[in-house]
Simulated scan of single mutants.
Amino acid sequence: MAATAVVQDARLGESVGNSAKLKALARQASNAAAEYRDLAAARGDRVHQYCEQIALRAMGKPHQAAQAREALIANNEEAFAGRFDEWWETYQVQPLAAEVTVWNSSIGYAGTLDLVATIGGRLCLIDYKTRGTNRDGRVKPLDPKVVMQLAAGAKAEEMVIDPAAGTWEPWKYSQDPMLLGVAIGETEVQTVMANPEVLPAYWSKFWSLRQVWGATQKVGDAGMPLREVGPPPPPAA
């Protein structure tokens, strides 16, 4: 990314032969990856916000769907909204809950599910990912790690009802849900299902990572791990 940033910088031509200007370009290009990450995160937030508002509108709840779409338009990202709208209609999504915060007290983790819905009469837990487009004009595929996120969501024990009041209720969407990852791109939306045969393995990995995290916290709070030890006293004369 740094090399690409330098090559595409309009100031490169006038900087050739000028070490000070070249160093300035290099310093700026070194931040290319971080800037790309931040821009992608902001874009993902806008797309997720739009998806949430569409679900709220479909459930007859207060929403800001128009404002969310305007935010995408302002950043030349309306294509994401268009492809999502097509997906929503094609899959005949019937939303039950959007942006649901869940909690598992037995293991000790919390998270958020983008959407709980029925599709084709089947209960679905859905995680959205905003993805770029490859050279063939297709949306880039999802990372398999999404299976861990979905498996953790499926193992929830409680869900928040009112975050301001801090009220929760037992998790009620555990009836053999289909776990779906939805890659939202500018040219298409790709929907994939977590293979039920691999779910135990991915859940085991998530559980193990949670234990490692907990152990690391304990080690960090345990105190000084190493103490200097001096030599023994000299033998008595």
Results as ranks from 00 to 15, higher is better:
residue 1 M to G: 11
residue 3 A to K: 07
residue 4 T to G: 11
residue 8 Q to F: 05
residue 12 L to H: 03
residue 13 G to W: 00
residue 13 G to Y: 00
residue 14 E to M: 00
residue 15 S to L: 00
residue 16 V to M: 07
residue 18 N to D: 14
residue 18 N to H: 09
residue 19 S to R: 08
residue 20 A to S: 01
residue 21 K to R: 13
residue 23 K to F: 02
residue 25 L to V: 07
residue 28 Q to D: 15
residue 31 N to K: 14
residue 32 A to L: 05
residue 34 A to G: 03
residue 39 L to G: 05
residue 40 A to F: 04
residue 40 A to C: 05
residue 41 A to H: 14
residue 43 R to T: 14
residue 43 R to A: 10
residue 46 R to L: 15
residue 47 V to I: 15
residue 47 V to A: 10
residue 48 H to G: 15
residue 49 Q to V: 07
residue 56 L to D: 03
residue 61 K to E: 14
residue 62 P to E: 04
residue 64 Q to I: 00
residue 64 Q to K: 14
residue 65 A to E: 14
residue 66 A to M: 05
residue 69 R to V: 01
residue 72 L to K: 09
residue 77 E to M: 11
residue 77 E to S: 14
residue 81 A to N: 08
residue 81 A to I: 06
residue 82 G to C: 10
residue 83 R to W: 05
residue 83 R to P: 03
residue 90 T to C: 09
residue 90 T to S: 13
residue 91 Y to G: 00
residue 93 V to A: 06
residue 97 A to V: 08
residue 100 V to R: 13
residue 101 T to Q: 13
residue 103 W to V: 10
residue 106 S to K: 12
residue 108 G to K: 13
residue 109 Y to H: 11
residue 110 A to P: 01
residue 117 A to R: 04
residue 117 A to V: 03
residue 130 T to C: 09
residue 133 T to C: 04
residue 134 N to K: 11
residue 137 G to R: 12
residue 137 G to K: 11
residue 138 R to C: 08
residue 139 V to A: 14
residue 143 D to V: 11
residue 145 K to R: 15
residue 146 V to P: 08
residue 148 M to H: 10
residue 152 A to F: 01
residue 153 G to T: 03
residue 156 A to V: 05
residue 156 A to Q: 09
residue 158 E to L: 15
residue 158 E to Q: 15
residue 160 V to F: 05
residue 161 I to K: 14
residue 164 A to H: 06
residue 165 A to C: 02
residue 167 T to G: 02
residue 167 T to S: 13
residue 168 W to I: 07
residue 169 E to C: 05
residue 169 E to Q: 14
residue 171 W to T: 02
residue 172 K to P: 00
residue 172 K to H: 03
residue 173 Y to W: 15
residue 174 S to G: 12
residue 177 P to S: 05
residue 177 P to F: 02
residue 179 L to Y: 04
residue 181 G to A: 14
residue 187 T to L: 10
residue 187 T to Q: 15
residue 188 E to K: 13
residue 189 V to S: 13
residue 191 T to F: 07
residue 193 M to I: 09
residue 195 N to R: 14
residue 198 V to S: 12
residue 202 Y to E: 07
residue 205 K to M: 10
residue 206 F to Q: 06
residue 212 V to Q: 12
residue 213 W to G: 13
residue 215 A to N: 13
residue 217 Q to F: 04
residue 217 Q to P: 02
residue 220 G to Q: 12
residue 223 G to K: 07
residue 227 R to V: 11
residue 232 P to Q: 12
residue 233 P to W: 03
residue 236 A to P: 08
residue 236 A to V: 11
